[in-house]
Nucleic acid binder design. Structure first.
Ligand SMILES: [Zn+2]
Ligand SMILES: [Zn+2]
Lengths: 274, 274
DNA sequence: GGAGTCTAGACACTC
DNA sequence: GAGTGTCTAGACTCC
């Protein structure tokens, strides 16, 4: 009999794989190595197909993507220790890889992803399986927020500089809080750098299989965040010479989960020759 | 400080590594990808250097090779489950890789290697460490021996065909026995296919850390082998219609496993004791 | 059992 | 310590 992958139902001839391949969204940066990226993403699809072959999840995935069905089932793969997945020679976070491939071609990092409430295995939960259903993640467009770090000089010299300062570096982190506080009073927020502690963002969502309504979690956290911010606001300004408010940053990682986070960014660039 | 391998004592600048690199013997088949092989063997040297960095073995190795010192110490690396070592993208048996590199450029397989008696960690012992000191292995030049498998027709038709038949396939296996029986009566040997059960050949050497003199083991086996062969000689010829004497071949793999005593049990043909 | 491919985990390096 | 790139043993596949 023919081998399973060379001539079998999972090789290129497989219609589901073929459809998944054609559903890929081309990346914006065509100026680079599009050829190589294309080849790589094809491998990524086949690698995924191989993992999903036992389950019926491959069909679920294809249907979810082609029908844009947010209410599709989870499509899970095993989670590695550091959360990264390797395909060919590149490593990256699985949900980022597949969300970029099928939904958000210009996705930069996992900080821009937020899982939908009904996803049972979002990356952020750090379970033994990770859902890579692109329809189970939403993209958080980074709002232009003030920078996290504010030099004391700048802060004391004028308020206007604070509200206009912005860095790409921590955009992702702030973006979640940014959304969270979007409806709140802006002046208080200018120094608010507390990061991704939202409900179903990629990196958080600590409580395992919690059945609590997400909106409730969100609400609860919002309150906590506000209280915290308020206290910090009155604490930092007076005497803190440190440019970076440590309190916020540590809270960022500790809050909402026990294990030191292993959130990672995007993809590792292609290798030389190996 | 600079990293250990980029600028440190183990990078190219390392004089010992440099000398080891220049001691490599060029392979014969320059017609092929010599450039690539050269690059690869350089990686293999550096990989080895890295493994040996903690111990003083790197210097031992360099001295052994440059002085051709057969009585040098063992130079060990950890043994993997299947015995193979991977460097860059290639896999191979470690002692073969390094013997080919520094002593026998045209070495084809581990069947052509025999460890010296005083080597404590020869590949064949399957300990947790493997000696890759090229001076601890000798190359067995394959003598032109009759093929292991002798079609019944050929065997019955004439004796001359048996003594001239030879295949490259099992040359390695037979070579050891070939040496072993080199001084014995050739006619009896024509059908002798009993495999690598020699003392310090690469693949055998079952008795762990046996302190028995190799010559003794050798002698003992020779006698047994002769007995065996004789009995087989009279057993197989008469009625066996099978082209391949199964007894010999299975013995090849099973033999020499546990205790020295069982070697011969393995050697004895399944057919003989029924 | 031999030989090649793939990748999680280990490790190295950067900031 | 987060993030990212590299290397390879073990797993797997095909003979
Ligand atoms: Zn899901
Ligand atoms: Zn040795």
């Amino acid at each position: 009999m023919a081998s399973l992958f060379v001539n079998g139902p999972l090789s290129p001839p497989n219609p589901v794989v073929k459809r998944l391949l054609s559903l890929r969204k081309p990346t914006r940066n065509d100026q680079n190595s599009n050829e190589k990226d294309d080849r790589w993403s094809e491998k990524a699809v086949k690698s995924l197909a191989k993992k999903l072959k036992k389950t019926r999840m491959l069909d679920v995935l294809e249907k979810a993507i082609s029908t844009q069905d947010v209410h599709s089932e989870c499509v899970n793969i095993p989670r590695s220790l550091d959360g990264r997945l390797q395909v060919s020679q590149r490593k990256g976070l699985p949900h980022v890889i597949y969300c970029r491939m099928w939904r958000f071609p210009d996705l930069q990092s996992h900080h821009q992803l937020k899982s939908v409430p009904h996803c049972k295995y979002p990356f952020s939960r750090k379970l033994d399986q990770v859902c890579v259903n692109p329809l189970h993640y939403e993209k958080i467009e980074a709002p232009t927020l003030p920078a996290i770090m504010v030099p004391k000089l700048a802060a004391s010299s004028g308020g206007s500089s604070l509200s206009t300062t912005s860095t790409d570096l921590n955009m992702g982190l702030r973006s979640v809080m940014g959304e969270m506080f979007e409806s709140m009073a802006p002046p208080t927020m200018d120094l608010a750098a507390s990061p991704d502690s939202n409900g179903n963002d990629d990196d958080d969502q600590l409580s395992p299989i919690s059945t609590t309504r997400l909106s409730d979690q969100f609400e609860e956290r919002r309150h906590t965040g506000v209280d915290y911010l308020t206290s910090v606001d009155s604490t930092i300004f007076p005497g803190n010479t440190e440019a970076s408010p440590q309190g916020y940053l540590s809270e960022d990682t500790d809050m909402e989960q026990q294990s030191p986070g292993t959130d990672f960014a995007a993809l590792s660039p292609p290798l030389s020759n190996r």
